[in-house]
């Protein structure tokens, strides 16, 4: 049957016509505009058929919530990486809970980054009875404290603690970032000193972070208190992240576990990071020096998650979205934008 013999149901049934109505393009336009011009008597019919095709929509449309959308994606990626059978060697929260409490402390500033870059990585003993664990950029370590508490110390971080804790308290000092699985001992509070403040573990699971003169404490489970130099104590609730900024202001929010705790499972996370934040993270993570020779859009930001990947791999990944070129010369990386050369 030819188009000039078509009735409305024929047009409504014709894929080439439907394609033109829904997605007019050069190919369909070329044909149909000419055809309509040659068949002016059919214009009304064509109009009616068009209207019906464009009319049809779902009455009850269902939408995935933003949370379901993200959760589903995460589950898909995670599940598809699991082996078909057998147990993986993944980190199990539950088994950690049994030990006692989990604590992550992060404290770092430009000062201590510079300090660690120049300092020796080998533990040194400034005074008898004090153990110093110090990681340079690009190196993480894990060990046990005398009381059985497990520590994962991030790169560019230093932890000092006594060979033996006293009978009253367990006190240590940290700069940089560490994840603690604190052995429960209600008679001896676990206290972490950062440069001005102290974090008191009250037999719980939590996470503390201080970055660029900003202290942040994230509690996983239980209860926790921040004691400031002024003596003021602030309690932190589970899933809460308490931030003390460079001006001493406190504010709290809910945190993203992957973003905050990911590093201990070798997960490098960028979340809407500015170029400076990105460079800072890469330098500490891989122990490299990055210099950029270009101008950047002030709105530039990058988000991505890398699970145990090489520096080259991460740089390649970031390149998907950007027009940068990079050069690796041992520990020095130069980033340029060829368009600005």
């Amino acid at each position: 049957m030819k188009y000039d013999e078509f009735d409305i149901e024929d047009f409504l049934n014709d894929e080439f016509f439907i394609q033109w109505v829904k997605h007019p393009g050069d190919e369909t336009d070329h044909f149909w505009i000419k055809w309509v011009a040659e068949h002016p008597e059919k214009i009304q019919l064509i109009q009616k058929a068009r209207q019906i095709i464009l009319f049809v929509d779902y009455k009850d449309k269902s939408f995935l919530s933003d949370k379901a959308y993200t959760d589903l994606y995460e589950n898909i990626v995670q599940k598809s990486e699991e082996p078909e059978s057998g147990k993986g060697t993944r980190f199990h929260w539950s088994s950690w809970h049994k030990v006692a409490a989990i604590l992550l402390v992060v404290f770092s500033s430009f000062y201590c980054i510079r300090y660690f870059v120049t300092s020796e990585q080998h533990p040194s003993s400034p005074s008898p009875g004090i153990i110093v664990k110090c990681n340079p950029a690009g190196q993480k370590s894990s060990f046990k404290l005398p009381d059985g508490t497990v520590v994962i110390l991030n790169a560019s971080s230093k932890l000092e603690y006594p060979e033996d804790f006293s009978s009253e308290t367990r006190e240590l000092s940290l700069s940089g970032e560490a994840f603690f699985c604190v052995k429960e001992d209600k008679s001896r509070p676990f206290i972490i000193h950062t440069d001005q403040d102290e974090v008191r573990v009250l037999g719980t699971t939590f996470n503390v972070s201080n970055h660029q003169n900003q202290l942040a404490i994230a509690l996983v489970e239980g209860s926790l208190a921040l004691k400031e130099a002024s003596g003021k104590e602030t309690t932190i609730r589970p899933k809460e992240l308490l931030v003390k900024d460079a001006y001493g202001q406190l504010r709290s929010s809910i945190y993203d576990p992957v973003e905050v705790l990911g590093w201990k499972d070798k997960t490098l996370v960028f979340k809407d990071d500015s170029f400076l934040q990105l460079v800072d993270k890469l330098e500490r993570w891989y122990g490299v020096k990055i210099s950029a020779e270009m101008e950047l859009d002030s709105l530039w930001s990058y988000s991505g998650i890398y699970q145990d990947k090489s520096l080259e791999y991460v740089l390649d990944g970031i390149s998907i979205a950007s027009e940068f070129t990079y050069k690796i010369d041992q520990k020095n990386i130069t980033i340029t934008n060829p368009k600005q050369q």
Binding site: Y73, Q78, S303, G304, I305, Q307, K309, G317, I320
Partner: peptide, 14 residues
Amino acid sequence: NKSKSTSTEVLYMQ
């Protein structure tokens, strides 16, 4: 050298 990315890293890409 084609850049290739795997795992969850693109999850938060804009």
